[in-house]
């Protein structure tokens, strides 16, 4: 158990349901129900599901952006409740998040340099010279020219913005990355390049990935194991090969058969 990068036990998140000013209870939505999952060190675990299945809520809880209603989380063997009490810095040093929409995850009024500098200064505590050197290394790691640092987010295309967002996540030197639909907003040719980059970075920096996606083919190309979520519950977990070849749950089967295939027309 201690080797797990992330392990969650009976994790539940409920939205709404608080007592309002006049005593009535507001409408309650169970976004995540009793989820138990483990991300092993160095592996890529994909979470697959359709909109509203609770996969993003699960991801946001894991990085501390949402607080679970009940259940336990351990990040790299440390209790998340303890980490949470230490504040966002404790979380950020261990686990980072890459958002679906790269454009809205970069502040339009800040240069790429100042966006990248923040985690280096606050999470790593590097001095100015070290920060400068690291920023260059990071740009290099995501295959972006060093002069990007002085430019603003609107000057970049979607794929480039996502590379920058990945560089920001890497800046914190985390062991774990949560990738929430990192390639869904990108064109196919760009998507392939970003997937390749992610795979190379994982090997280079020995990272563990929690990869959220609705695209089964993308998931199959990058993940070791897959968990299928349906209405807040994990209905099936298995190794990537086994799950796609012989899905056990009826919903997984439906998902796989719904995915449009190139071959039907081609062959």
């Amino acid at each position: 158990m201690t080797a797990d990068a992330i392990s969650v036990t009976n994790l539940t998140k409920t939205f709404g349901g608080q007592r309002s000013l006049f005593g009535g209870r507001s409408h309650e939505v169970k976004a995540v129900k009793d989820v138990t999952l483990a991300l092993k060190q160095g592996e890529t675990l994909a979470i697959v599901g359709e909109s509203g299945s609770g996969k993003s809520t699960l991801a946001r809880m894991v990085v501390g952006l949402e607080t679970p209603t009940s259940g336990e989380m351990q990040i790299a063997g440390k209790d998340a409740a303890v980490l949470n009490a230490e504040g966002p810095r404790a979380f950020g040093q261990m686990i980072q998040y890459v958002f679906q929409d790269p454009v809205s995850s970069l502040n339009p009024r800040k240069t790429i340099g100042s966006i990248l500098e923040t985690p280096l200064r606050l999470l790593k505590g590097y001095d100015r010279a070290k920060r400068k050197a690291r920023m260059k290394e990071l740009m290099d790691a995501v295959h972006m020219p060093a002069d990007s640092l002085e430019r603003y987010p609107h000057e970049f295309s979607g794929g480039q913005s996502q590379r920058i967002a990945i560089a920001r996540a890497l800046a914190a030197e985390p062991q774990i990355m949560v990738l929430d639909e990192p390639v869904s907003a990108l064109d196919v040719s760009v998507q392939a390049q970003v997937l390749l980059l992610l795979e190379d970075l994982r090997k280079e920096f020995d990272l563990s990935y929690l990869f959220i996606s609705h695209d089964l083919a993308v998931v199959e190309s990058i993940s070791d194991r897959v968990a299928v979520m349906f209405f807040g519950e994990v209905v099936e977990v298995g190794s990537s090969e086994q799950l796609f070849r012989s899905p056990q749950h009826e919903y997984t089967e439906r998902l796989i058969s719904s995915a449009p295939r190139l071959e039907t027309g081609a062959n």
Partner: peptide
Amino acid sequence: KRLIACVPKPGQGRAFLDAVRKLPAR
């Protein structure tokens, strides 16, 4: 050709990324 090569196909698995790596630089 390039576009089609960039679409991961079901059943292709990790072989997809190796194929992308071999594509000529854009």
